[in-house]
């Protein structure tokens, strides 16, 4: 069964002038079809304003469709009585770690979610421990979040979602405000959760290097899904990606340019090792 099943999803919103009068209608999502199987690691790519974050907000019912439907674990997000279940199924991590950490001690912040769900105290602590250990932040449990680096804060935010034991985690540009080290940490943790705990991960990003190890990639532009496929397939379409304001990793681009210059190199090279092997053969 698909844990996420979006069918012709449309999201429209009204543009308003200073007095609040409606100026016009903008379409942020325009007939999006998206199917995610439980346990997959999916990436959604797109430039700023392509609609990818709007899509993310539909997956845990922060927004509901203007048209079309989206089912999360079999539940229609348009039905208000499903909202609570859906948010428990699909946890969300946002771009700015400072906007989602609320407590003054790391472990209390992670415990906030399960506490609100009415989980018994003993179990809360068990969940907090598991969650912090799975993002490798257990030794910081008594620290104040404001003393942590961006990558560490983001991992605490992920632990906070983990503690609610969702089946699916949506990471909405979780690395946009981090430095290269922090970015690597967060992506590594996301892959680990996917592999070890079998949590479905939906990674929304505009960094191409982060999606090379995904099971499947969607590229969005102007509210539509314009490309989809496995990473190798997506990255072999360099010119098409560029037309959607995307970039490809340096190595992929180099392989593409070498091919153009007459060196027999296949398209869609993702890693340095592959290119070296091809050149040596």
């Amino acid at each position: 069964m698909n844990i996420i099943d979006a069918r012709k999803l449309v999201h429209e919103y009204f543009r308003r002038d200073e007095e609040g009068n409606v100026e016009g209608v903008s379409v942020a999502l325009d007939g999006v079809d998206l199917k995610v199987k439980a346990g997959q690691f999916i990436s959604v790519l797109g430039h700023n304003g392509s609609g990818k974050s709007t899509l993310a907000k539909h997956i845990n019912a922060l927004l509901t469709p203007s048209d079309g439907t989206i089912y999360v674990d079999g539940k229609n997000t348009a039905e208000p009585e499903n909202t609570y279940d859906i948010r428990q199924t699909a946890g969300m991590v946002f771009q700015n770690p400072d906007n989602q950490i609320i407590a003054s001690i790391v472990e209390e912040d992670v415990g906030f979610g399960p506490e609100n769900m009415g989980v018994p105290t003993d179990e809360i602590w068990e969940r907090v421990e598991n969650a912090l250990k799975s993002v490798q932040m257990w030794k910081y449990r008594t620290h104040s979040p404001n003393r942590l680096s961006g990558g560490q804060k983001q991992r605490v935010a992920i632990a906070g979602v983990m503690a609610m034991q969702p089946k699916c985690i949506i990471l909405d540009e979780p690395t946009a405000m981090l430095d290269p080290d922090g970015r690597k940490e967060v992506i590594r943790v996301a892959h680990e959760l996917n592999q070890k705990k079998n949590i479905t991960v939906i990674l929304i990003t505009h960094y191409m290097e982060e999606v090379v190890d995904s099971d499947y990639v969607y590229v969005m532009d102007k509210g539509k899904i314009v490309m989809e496929g496995v990473p190798r397939d997506i990255f072999s379409r360099v010119d098409e990606l560029k037309s959607h304001r995307m970039d490809v990793p340096q190595i992929t681009l180099l392989a593409h340019e070498l091919k153009r210059s007459g060196v027999p190199v296949p398209e869609g090279i993702l890693h340095r090792k592959e290119l070296i092997n091809v050149l040596n053969s």
Binding site: I251, L254, L258, S261, R272
Partner: peptide, 27 residues
């Protein structure tokens, strides 16, 4: 990344300049 690539190629006996820093230079 391209600098790493050149370093590794050099180690394998390719006669390449390892001070390359851009895709175009590497090409």
């Amino acid at each position: 990344e391209v600098t790493y690539l050149m370093l590794e190629l050099k180690e394998m006996g390719w006669d390449v300049d390892t001070t390359v820093t851009t895709v175009e230079e590497a090409r």
